[in-house]
Simulated assay, not measured.
Amino acid sequence: MAHRSFLLLGVLCVKHHFTKGEALFLYPLFPIPTPTEILHYQYLTVYKSLLSKDPAKNVEEMIIHIDKVDSDASLHEDYVEYRVHGKNNSSEWDGYWDISANNWEEWLGFYIDHNVLERFSSEQIAALCLYEMTWFGFSEELNHE
Rank of each mutant, 00 (worst) to 15 (best):
Y82F: 09
E77W: 06
I38K: 07
E118Y: 05
F18Q: 13
N102K: 06
A126V: 08
G109A: 06
I64F: 03
F25H: 14
L128P: 02
Y79T: 11
I63W: 04
I125F: 01
Q42I: 03
I63A: 02
S49N: 14
K68R: 06
K48E: 15
Y82H: 12
A56T: 03
H76F: 10
T134Q: 11
L130Y: 09
M1K: 08
L75E: 14
H40A: 11
Y47D: 15
Y27T: 04
L117V: 15
D94Y: 06
F6W: 07
E145N: 08
H17A: 12
I32V: 08
S122A: 09
I125K: 03
L75G: 12
I66M: 04
G109Y: 01
N143D: 06
M133L: 14
E61V: 03
E106V: 05
Y47N: 12
T36F: 01
E145T: 09
W135A: 14
F30M: 06
Y47Q: 14
A2E: 15
K20T: 10
L9D: 08
E118Q: 14
V84K: 00
C129L: 11
F25R: 15
H40I: 12
E77S: 11
S49K: 13
L9G: 05
E123Q: 10
S5T: 05
H85K: 05
E141V: 06
A101I: 04
Y96K: 07
L108F: 05
